[in-house]
């Protein structure tokens, strides 16, 4: 199963990104594990310099921005096919 992680210790955009993923999951009936990573050391182990970070199957997809829904869907599909 695809694992999606949101890296960020509670900034406004981090919360918005989490909500966007929850919405996508229900709207499109997708199946993936959604994990919020709030511990700084773990966040930093991904080498990102701006939060939120979006990680799909341990690959950093975006940092510091709120990617739009179509873009996120594309990443999720790629990950699903690769698995």
């Amino acid at each position: 199963m695809t694992t999606v992680k949101i890296l960020g210790s509670g900034c406004a955009k981090c919360k918005a990104l989490h909500q966007r993923l929850l919405d996508l999951r229900t709207e499109h009936g997708l199946e993936f594990d959604l994990i919020k990573v709030t511990e700084l050391r773990e966040i930093m182990s991904y080498g990102i310099m701006a939060t939120p970070g979006l990680v799909v199957n341990d690959v950093v997809k975006s940092t510091g921005v709120l990617p739009d829904a179509t873009q996120i869907l594309e990443w999720l599909k790629e990950a699903h096919h690769a698995a």
Binding site: S9, C11, K13, M44, M49, A50
Partner: peptide
């Protein structure tokens, strides 16, 4: 450079 004070820590460490 795009910057938000909420990202000050990751940026500092980076």
């Amino acid at each position: 450079t795009p910057f938000c004070s909420c990202s000050a820590v990751p940026l500092f460490i980076g």
